[in-house]
Amino acid sequence: MKVQIILAVCLSSAAAAQRIDDRSRTVDELTACREVRGDAARLRCYDRAADVLANARASGDLMVLDRKTVVARKQQRFGLTTPTGEMFGGGASDDATAVRQLDSKIVAIAPAKAYGRFDIQLANGSVWQTLEALSFPPKPGTGVTVKEAAMGGYRLSIAGDRSVLTKRIR
């Protein structure tokens, strides 16, 4: 099984653009070691590149996350106002781990301040408020799906029934 790794760079300074360039070159230098001829020279190349990566990781300048961890973190943030692309660097790797839907179960429900609307807590701890009235409150244990809707909103479908507009409040 092929393990896919996503490298995320944590930056803080005015020289952020230069530092991104340095880190990507560091990873490129490691992969370039495959082309070095001669066992001893190739091993020295790998040792040098591995030392640079290990030091960057130890200092916190470089973070390595597997795909499963990135997707889990994006699922936890799904529906909140902070775009996860800013957290994980954007680009093709970020697009490949995009979360556009959340499937869960209701663990708690409470009436919202507006008639017919409810605050629904899901198994992952997130709380969503319906923006449209529901005829009856859903029951805990019921499966739900939250999907991205047009124009940046979200739609919540309870047990596969019609979906209603919703927003994440926690």
Rank of each mutant, 00 (worst) to 15 (best):
Q121R: 14
I6C: 11
V99H: 09
A40D: 08
S157A: 15
L134C: 14
L53Q: 05
A110I: 10
R162E: 04
V27Q: 06
K147N: 14
K139H: 10
I20C: 06
D103W: 01
L43T: 07
V144M: 04
F78Q: 02
I6G: 15
V3P: 10
V127M: 04
E132I: 03
R67A: 13
R44W: 00
A56K: 13
K2L: 11
S24W: 15
D22N: 02
L53F: 13
E35C: 07
D47G: 02
G160C: 09
C33H: 06
T97I: 06
V9K: 01
I5C: 08
A114R: 00
R162H: 02
A50Q: 11
D61L: 14
V9Q: 05
G91T: 04
D161V: 13
F136M: 15
R19I: 00
A14N: 05
T82S: 03
V64E: 14
V146M: 05
Q101H: 03
L165Y: 07
T81L: 13
A17S: 07
L62R: 13
R77Y: 01
I106N: 06
E35N: 11
A72Y: 04
R42L: 01
I106M: 05
D47C: 03
R44I: 06
A15K: 02
V70S: 08
E29S: 10
R19Y: 03
G79V: 00
C10G: 09
C10Y: 01
P138G: 07
G60Y: 12
V164Y: 11
I106D: 04
P138F: 00
Y115G: 04
R48N: 10
R57H: 15
P137Y: 01
I20H: 04
T130M: 05
T69Y: 13
R155E: 12
R117V: 02
A54R: 15
